[in-house]
Design a protein around this nucleic acid. Structure first.
Lengths: 204, 204
DNA sequence: GGCGTTACTGGACTCGCAGTACAGTTGGGA
DNA sequence: TCCCAACTGTACTGCGAGTCCAGTAACGCC
């Protein structure tokens, strides 16, 4: 909209970095405006309150994450159009991506908001919920495709399996943050991949 | 120490309930003292500041969690002393336990603190780290025992596999909170169990 | 029966941060 | 030329954390 890097975007960038580093509550509007080089009034011109900021951050984050998954698995399918191998390649690429981020993944805003949910209004919580349900649907569809070709070697709940991708990423990121290591999420994804390999392997 | 339910314990109980419900930052000392029916001065008599409270909560939580794992897997071993089956039985019992909590698990304080870590001092963070490392060690030992008997059908990092238990529980709890469902953690554990079953199944 | 210690109460105060309000400024477009 | 979006700047309210401290009630013990 404006000339230089859109102020609203700049606010979101600064806020995201800070929130991922120290949490939402610990991020003051003071430091956001300092970082974005605007006045307090300027901040409230763009966002009614911190809740509105949270909502905008989540919306942007979810969009980016979805685009990333789209691109990743599209590329994987290009490389091998067998549904199982698309999944395995995609997960490997995801694991590598996470491992390549030296300062760790922009640790999932989802978990961060989930654990402080009474702080946020219904809109923010619902956004969060819908994002996870979206990922469930996305991965469930992929697993259905796989199961149609490779009979699973154990009876499983496909919704839960769909959730497992998000769960493993979130869980890995929690460990990563708590341990201050940087490859836990990546390793956990590789274990999920190992599971899928075994689960859908043709009987020998 | 005192006659009625120890004030310190009462503070921790009230605080834990509130923190699990709405997060640490959103829990005010005001409401803790109201709940525990003491004065503000009384709170600060027991805890120097909110950090000291966080530390005490974490210590207590980790102790309880460890005792629970001890008991669960001891019982599982009683039922079947084959290491793989001890693990499978223990996980099943853990999953059932999580599913039986109608209001959900006392959602992991670990994740909650991990995502707000700049808020807490080194002591709290280190406590968190040590707890997760402890669980890694515990489960890694169990997996080593299993691997000595059943050759794994995929090459895996045993530390990462040890972490997978914590990761799956944490990840499941994040989903549970965000989705406001109540069996995600339990389902994720059952998927981990399915993985271990396949990973260590004798070749057919 | 006085003495110290533990476990508080209660009030007053400082400080930082969220949020409100609003008046004024600046730099394009129509 | 005037309007409007995108701000700046200041001043104020209110809440919660944390500090300080004086007082007090119950006890254990010498």
């Amino acid at each position: 909209m404006t000339e230089k890097t859109d102020t609203r975007t700049r606010i979101l960038d600064i806020a995201e970095a800070s929130v991922l580093q120290k949490g939402f509550e610990a991020t003051s509007i003071e430091e956001i405006v300092a970082g974005a080089e605007i006045s307090r009034g300027g901040f409230f011109y763009h966002f009614k309150d911190k809740n509105a900021l949270a909502r905008a951050m989540l919306e942007r984050y979810i969009e980016v994450e979805n685009a990333l998954y789209d691109e990743l698995f599209a590329r994987a399918r290009e490389l091998d159009d067998d549904p199982l191998h698309t999944m395995l390649i995609g997960l490997k690429m995801l694991a590598e991506m996470l491992a390549d981020m030296p300062e760790g993944h922009p640790g999932c805003v989802i978990a961060s908001t989930a654990y402080q949910d009474r702080l946020f209004d219904k809109g923010v919580q619902e956004l969060n919920r819908q994002a996870i349900l979206g990922w469930r649907k996305r991965f469930r569809a992929m697993f259905e495709e796989i199961a149609a070709v490779y009979e699973p070697r154990d009876t499983i709940n496909l919704d839960a399996l769909g959730d497992m991708v998000s769960s493993v990423v979130e869980g890995g990121l929690v460990l990563q943050r708590a341990l201050r290591e940087h490859n836990n999420a990546s390793e956990q994804i590789m274990l999920l991949r190992s599971y899928l390999k075994l689960l859908f392997s043709p009987k020998m």
